[in-house]
Design a protein around this nucleic acid. Structure first.
Lengths: 133, 133
DNA sequence: GTAAATGCAAAAACTTTGCAAATTC
DNA sequence: GAATTTGCAAAGTTTTTGCATTTAC
């Protein structure tokens, strides 16, 4: 796992948290991480877990899954279509079907799992936020 | 827009809310909907907006975008890969690259927008939740 | 020794819910 | 008139933050 660069002190709690996260096919919530880390660092606080998860994800060491942003968004258009989200301002736009090129819908086969659909979200920066960077 | 079937009374507030949502390329938060609806129904409450958004999305009339579920999830594996999420229990698993077939990465061109990446999430039901349905 | 990081608790942010009153059919 | 829906406010849930104390370097 990549070592974070903005971290200045490798505390016991942080080391245990990073070790804990270094597991394949595991997608824990902050509270799940908290409970696991507490087994080795019984006094760790949930705040510390949140703080470190935030630091690590900003570093790109770990990823936030399905980060919906602060507030959930709704779409009055219930026809299948894709979205693009600005990582700067959080705004979401539709992606016109003709803007996406692939030969066919993505297909997946997973044992013991019935796939009913998929969501594809493009990320990047809108004109306004891109200029600010 | 599809008309919801489980709704029994078309109240003034609900009608205005549905009319409000019927707009293209708009992906409002509950609070944004609330403020727009209030222009025509000044006494509407945020609770009513949430209740109706929930009903409408359960009906499939509107969609929740990037519904992260109750709690955010993290992934210690920061290499690009896709996920599959069970709509029953909310669990998330990795999708092995070889399980996804398409000819090439999805590409998109959107004016005034710099796309830096994409997220692809498959949805469905795991073995356990699929049996319960 | 110094500054970063923690623990704790309080606050913030977002969403859901109980209940009396209003409204639709 | 009966039952759904609303408005209000309170509570629930998740995440963030202020600050004194601890800890790593």
């Amino acid at each position: 796992m990549k070592t974070p660069t903005s971290i200045q002190r490798m505390t016991r709690q942080r080391r245990i948290l990073i070790e804990t996260l270094d597991r394949r096919n595991w997608h824990p919530t902050a509270e799940e991480v908290y409970h696991i880390v507490r087994k080795k660092a019984p006094k760790v606080s949930l705040g510390t877990v949140y703080r470190n998860l935030d630091i690590l994800s900003k570093e790109g060491v770990i990823a936030k899954i399905e980060d919906a942003g602060a507030q959930r968004r709704y779409d009055g258009n219930n026809k299948p279509h894709y979205h693009v989200k600005c990582l700067g301002c959080g705004n979401v736009w539709d992606v016109p079907d003709e803007a996406v090129s692939w030969v066919r819908e993505p297909r997946v086969r997973i044992p013991d799992f019935t796939v009913t659909g998929h969501r594809l979200l493009f990320e990047g920066y809108c004109f306004h936020c891109g200029k600010q960077k």
